[in-house]
Deep mutational scan, measured.
Amino acid sequence: SKWSPSQVVDWMKGLDDCLQQYIKNFEREKISGDQLLRITHQELEDLGVSRIGHQELILEAVD
């Protein structure tokens, strides 16, 4: 995926409302499409996504 960080942010805006709070962290870390495809629970935790349910929603959406 050749998504830029801004495309990742646009994609996140289409996800569940409960995930919108994390967008600024993804933006700050400039998460690209390639990074998103390989993202782990630990990396999500580092991005402030501490709730497992929220991590799962992001990982499922990526899949």
Rank of each mutant, 00 (worst) to 15 (best):
S1D: 14
S1E: 08
S1Y: 12
S1R: 08
S1K: 15
K2N: 13
W3A: 04
W3S: 05
W3I: 13
S4E: 06
S4L: 06
S4Y: 05
P5W: 12
P5L: 05
P5D: 08
S6R: 13
S6V: 12
S6H: 13
Q7T: 05
Q7F: 03
Q7R: 06
V8S: 03
V8C: 03
V8L: 02
V8M: 02
V9G: 11
V9M: 10
D10H: 09
W11T: 01
W11V: 03
M12D: 03
M12I: 10
K13H: 11
K13F: 07
K13T: 08
G14I: 00
G14C: 07
L15T: 06
L15I: 06
D16E: 08
D17I: 06
C18R: 07
Q20R: 09
Q20D: 08
Q21R: 10
Q21V: 12
Y22D: 05
Y22R: 03
N25F: 12
F26R: 01
F26S: 02
R28M: 12
R28C: 09
R28W: 04
R28G: 08
I31K: 01
S32L: 03
S32D: 12
G33E: 01
Q35W: 05
Q35H: 12
Q35A: 12
L36Q: 01
L36G: 01
L37M: 15
L37Q: 10
L37R: 10
R38F: 06
R38Q: 10
T40I: 01
T40W: 00
T40H: 04
H41C: 10
H41D: 09
H41I: 09
H41L: 08
H41F: 06
E43M: 10
L44V: 02
L44T: 02
E45H: 13
D46R: 15
L47E: 02
L47H: 02
L47V: 06
L47Q: 01
L47W: 04
G48I: 00
G48F: 00
G48C: 03
G48M: 01
V49Y: 00
V49H: 00
S50Q: 12
S50W: 11
S50E: 15
R51W: 11
I52S: 13
G53Q: 15
H54D: 11
H54Q: 00
Q55K: 13
E56W: 07
E56Y: 07
L57H: 06
I58E: 05
I58L: 12
I58Y: 00
L59M: 13
L59T: 04
L59A: 04
L59I: 08
L59D: 04
E60Q: 14
V62Y: 00
V62C: 06
